[in-house]
Amino acid sequence: MAGQFEIFTDAESNVRFRLLGADGTVLAVSKAFEDKRSAADGIMAVRECAGTGLIRETHSTPWGGTTWTTSSKTPHPHPSRRRHSPAV
Rank of each mutant, 00 (worst) to 15 (best):
D41Y: 06
P77F: 02
T67I: 15
M44L: 14
A39S: 02
E48T: 15
T67C: 07
A32I: 01
T9H: 04
A28L: 14
D23S: 13
R18H: 01
H84E: 07
E34F: 05
G51K: 09
P79F: 05
A11M: 07
N14V: 00
T74A: 11
D41W: 02
E57M: 09
K73L: 12
T74E: 10
R82E: 12
V15G: 00
G21W: 05
F8H: 07
W63N: 15
T25K: 12
T61P: 02
R82N: 04
L54R: 13
Q4V: 06
R56A: 11
V88W: 14
V15M: 03
C49V: 15
A2D: 15
V46Q: 11
A32P: 03
G24V: 08
C49L: 14
F5D: 06
G24M: 06
F17G: 03
E57V: 14
P75W: 03
L19A: 13
W63P: 05
K73C: 05
K31R: 13
P86T: 10
V26P: 11
D23I: 06
M44Y: 00
P62F: 07
E12W: 05
P75H: 01
K73W: 04
W68L: 07
L19W: 09
H59N: 09
F5S: 01
R18W: 00
L27W: 02
S80E: 15
